[in-house]
Amino acid sequence: MELEVKSVAPPTTFRLMNLQKKMRFKEQAIEGVLFLVGVLTIFITLSIVFVLGNEALLFFEDPEVTLAEFLGSTKWAPAIGEFGIWALVSATLTTSVIALAVAVPLGLSAAIYLSEYASLRVRSILKPILEILAGIPTVVYGYFALMFVTPLLRSVVGNQIGVYNMLSAGLVMGIMILPLMSSMSEDALNAVPNSLREAAYALGSTRFEAALQVVVPAAFSGIGAAIIVGVSRAVGETMIVAIASGATSKFTFNPLEAAETMTAHIARISGGDLSYNSIDYNSLFAIALMLFLVTLVLNLLSQWIVKRFREQYE
């Protein structure tokens, strides 16, 4: 017994202590490596900008192309040297607007129900369903749009809807974005402190009045951020539109028509036989650069909003 106590007792004779800072090479090497790994992620962004920018530059240097034509014309026909991005942008806009018209109201309503009404039991059933929807690959949504939604629309509206149309692609894209919209909005609603709900209830409000007139406005910026991310997702979505909205570039905002979005065009052309350094090849990078810049701005904006919003209640 006595021995054991002795072994953990402090030393009886103290040496001179050296508390000077020591160089720990291994520690510093590890930190250095981890830092480099972190910095590597910046290089990914830089290389995206460099690669897309470089090839896009080649595209604009081509005598056949002018920036004015690219940003001003509504005709996209590489075969005859027409490069008006609006022919593709129009379809991207149309499908995105339809998708958001579905995803924003449905996603927000779903979020309000889950955060303000649902009992734990109901939540534990409904929430996983949204998560499953979020986990389904977009190519599967594309199949669903072409094989189910389009025939359904055609049987309801009639044959003025083509086999390929932007309406079907947009609707299905909306369903695809719904879970994202709902889970981001729910986070925003949950971040609203309970004291605000209590204040509303104590004034004699119903649950609905508290939810829609107090909680939703208080979560407004978070919901705004969710909508922006939804826009960015819709603009960048490829497979659904590549499969369901058609393969002809056409300047139109009519959802019943077929038209090719920016993403679908890239997928179709690059999926075929494409010779490097041709103007077709370079033009794809110009489109991709535009996509990247648009989504980058949207994502930065949404992050900035979320960050400001988080500070509001802290």
Partner: peptide, 30 residues
Amino acid sequence: VRRRIGMVFQKPNPFPKSIYENIAWGARIN
């Protein structure tokens, strides 16, 4: 019941609205 028995909480919890709207909201819904 809550319309007739009001409550003030431990931490001040004004709505993130204007001062005017904070008072007007409760009146309006009632």
